[in-house]
């Protein structure tokens, strides 16, 4: 995975988020303040506008740039959370112009740990972590078991999708949805859903090869 691929993935995620803006916002209407899609679409639109200035940068700097942009434009909890995630991933890829599968895993792990740190959250609290943590584990297991990167990432996307389903069965204890207590049951978490979309989009771009 080289710099060009990373830029393609970021651009594709921006498109996907824009396409799913209303859906994500509707999910957030059910158990939040109805702005998740609007927030993320605003953030990724500004990322999209910045993309040309990232063209000659290394992967670390690109991801860091994406994170910085999200922090300053999203406006909701997903801003500092995804912002920290991309910045930490960028830190893990400092100076690199290509990533091995292992380096990609390290970047994703840094991102997930960044979200845990920023949100003071763990798995099982009905947040984006319920998609990302199982995905990270599946990716590691797949690669450890000898699968190629695309197959392992396919497992990761499946695990994230299962994680999104799982969020319907639990009560939120972090974020706006936690005010609803048991009334958050039966609804899927918007942030877990946007995380799934990002992983799906990454896979789709890599499958094109």
């Amino acid at each position: 995975m080289d710099t060009k691929k990373i830029l393609e993935i970021v651009a594709a995620i921006a498109k996907k988020i824009e396409a799913e803006k209303n859906f994500l916002t509707e999910l957030d209407n059910e158990i939040g303040d109805g702005d998740h899609g609007i927030n993320l679409a605003r953030g990724f639109k500004s990322v999209e506008e910045k993309l040309p200035t990232f063209a000659d940068k290394d992967i670390g700097a690109i991801l860091k740039g994406v994170g910085t942009q999200l922090v300053s434009t999203v406006g909701g909890a997903s801003g500092p959370l995804y912002g920290t995630a991309f910045m930490k991933a960028g830190n893990a890829c400092k100076g690199k112009t290509s990533l091995t599968p292992e380096e990609f895993v390290a970047a994703l792990e840094a991102a997930v740990n960044g979200i845990k740190m920023r949100g003071k959250a763990v798995e099982g609290e009905k947040t984006m972590l319920d998609a990302l943590c199982p995905a990270l584990k599946a990716l590691k297991d797949g690669l450890g078991g000898g699968k190629n990167f695309v197959d392992a990432l396919t497992d990761a996307v499946d695990a994230a999708a299962a994680g999104v389903e799982y969020t319907k069965t639990i009560i939120a204890t972090k974020g706006r949805a936690s005010y609803l207590k048991e009334r958050s049951l039966g609804h899927q978490d918007p942030g877990a859903t946007s995380s799934l979309f990002m992983l799906q989009t990454t896979l789709e771009v890599l499958r094109e090869d």
């Binding site: 922090v71 406006g75 909701g76 909890a77 801003g79 500092p80 959370l81 912002g83 920290t84 920023r118 949100g119 974020g175 706006r176």
Partner: peptide, 10 residues
């Protein structure tokens, strides 16, 4: 609350 806390932290 929420993002107000996290963003201030950043």
């Amino acid at each position: 609350m929420g993002s107000a806390v996290m963003t201030t932290e950043m």
